[in-house]
Design a protein around this nucleic acid. Structure first.
Lengths: 326, 326
DNA sequence: GGTGCTCCTGCACGTATGTTCATTGACAGT
DNA sequence: ACTGTCAATGAACATACGTGCAGGAGCACC
């Protein structure tokens, strides 16, 4: 009747594709599909899972433009940033909150990243969570570039950062550019010397030309210690200097004040993260925030014009709007 | 805890949107969503149905480019047309076949049609089937234009054509341009006179500028009588003249031969359908075929270069390829 | 204040779906 | 040939889901 039974290269994918067609386009039941494909219902269920997981099936949610949530509209009006408010119940724990925001971002990321693009990614608990959920999307000639080093006094950080980068890389079939330097240098001179090395300057150039940047926020002085501060990257003196300088947060280990300024923050001279000028020249800059602990940091980042697309949970969005207009 | 309970304009849509987010982006179970939205699981199920039906949720299937089906690739190579082969079991009935192809087309059509576009549609059993399944997609400043008249000696055909057009119109929120003339005039002079009327010429101009044309195929001499021939549009003499001229099919009641030529086919002088030159100037021309009965017609339409995108069932695709290269 | 209408809700039921598990067949190493 | 490993399969079970139904809220019209 049919003409399969010959094992071609990606036979499974072919089957998954037709199963998806039958299921999502023709509304057949899995049972019926199993019959048409001469296999069992269970296998069809698995085929469809495979189809979804490998990005063959792409489910998008499109607000009918006339109905963005009040929060998103108000954030756009006041901060000139496209917001995506992730619905999370107010009683959710902070980990839940992070996890759910990350999941949403991971699902939507594919809409922003495509072939021939370069994606810059930071690292940290937020990025880690996102990386664990990115859905597959085949791209060509694209690359992932690490925004800032991850080494510290205890470890080179390579494993941690590379794990995150790697997940993005395999999800998009993209080439991964690692950045094997410490997050903070002890001596600014070392950084400058290294920055002149061709291997490093090549990478900095790639950063300068990236199409999309994806990052979370650090907030050194909030109760919830973010990864940077817990991991032994900074010592007491560093903290004191940040506090003295009036720092409220960081993006990719580059610090800023509440008004978005960075001038005279000594630690930035030793940071491996990209200068904000580099970020600002990136067409799309996606920031992911969950939890009100990072509010001050978020306000600063908004003032610094680091963000074009903002993902946050509902509670944080409300909190952001409960403040004198920026 | 939450802040709903106030009935805003499109409150249901808002809810459907968050439900969709929670379901499709965050993989929550409907039960969990019901809890978060303070409603019952059943209602969530209905909300999600609503979300899908109103196009809030958009499910696409994307072949990973390196794996289009053999059939699609071969059709592209031989006929230079983008094919979409709809999987249908070989033992399906002709109505099933039509219904399933139509359903697939209806689901995918939204990817071709957007705001500020004009969609030209023919009528007939294929178009009717498609129209009954088109999924909602909000567009602005777009219109649907009827390609050919539907009147005949028994009825004005207004109801039938208008029903089809109307379904497309409401699905896309587009303005509908009807074409209230007979499918075939008795006297070519009448047609020409009418064509000079401003109301009609305005419509012809719209046809001339359309972005997408959507049509099925007629095949006057196949066993399965298509709507045009069953409905009393043509008399014995007409049939004889078509047969004498070597006609194998029609698009929007304009006839062509196996080699795609139309010169000297008298009936076309009296037809209300668009000249093929008009069609050929349309950037995207989507043809929908189901069932091998229309094969000869399809081959002619391909020769006439009427098609840029072809939707057909698997069996017909195979049959199309079982023939000397074109 | 009925009366009929429509629309919405949640329950309960039957069906469709996801997942575990034991079995199988293919294959590589010895 | 034997055996261990692995991926893939379908049966059986547990869950999640869709839908008919009865009840109730809102509303227009007598």
């Amino acid at each position: 009747m049919s003409h399969d039974d010959d094992a071609s290269p990606s036979d499974r994918t072919r089957d998954a594709l037709t199963a998806a067609h039958l299921y999502y386009m023709q509304d057949l039941t899995m049972d019926a599909i199993a019959h048409e494909l001469h296999t069992s219902r269970s296998s069809v269920s698995r085929l469809l899972s495979h189809a979804r997981a490998s990005g063959l099936v792409d489910i998008q949610i499109r607000s009918p433009l006339d109905a963005p949530s009040r929060l998103e509209k108000e954030i756009l009006d006041r901060f000139h940033v496209t917001a995506h408010v992730v619905p999370v119940p107010d009683n959710a724990s902070d980990v839940d909150r992070l996890e759910r925001v990350a999941l949403s971002v991971a699902r939507i990321l594919g809409q922003y990243f495509d072939s021939n693009m370069t994606l810059g990614v930071a690292w940290g608990s937020t990025m880690n969570a996102i990386s664990r959920h990115v859905t597959l999307k085949a791209t060509h000639n694209s690359q992932i570039v690490q925004l800032n080093g991850a080494g510290n006094m205890r470890t080179t950080g390579l494993a941690y950062a590379s794990e995150i980068l790697g997940r993005f890389g395999t999800a998009f079939g993209a080439h991964v550019q690692q950045f094997p330097v410490p997050a903070f240098f002890d001596d600014p001179a070392t950084k400058q010397a290294l920055w002149r090395e061709r291997s490093v300057s090549r990478l900095l150039e790639i950063q300068g030309r990236m199409s999309v940047a994806l990052f979370g926020l650090g907030s050194p002085f909030s109760e919830v210690t973010s990864h940077v501060y817990a991991g032994g990257y900074l010592d007491e003196a560093d903290y004191a200097s940040l506090s003295d300088a009036g720092v409220v947060g960081d993006v990719a280990t580059v610090f800023f004040r509440a008004d978005g300024s960075t001038d005279g923050i000594a630690l930035n001279e030793r940071s491996s993260g990209p200068e904000f000028a580099v970020l600002r020249s990136t067409p799309r800059r996606i920031c992911v925030v969950s939890g009100t602990a990072k509010l001050a940091s978020l306000r600063g980042a908004l003032h610094a014009d680091l963000i074009t697309d903002l993902f946050l949970d509902e509670g944080t969005a409300r909190a952001l709007l409960n403040s004198p207009t920026a």
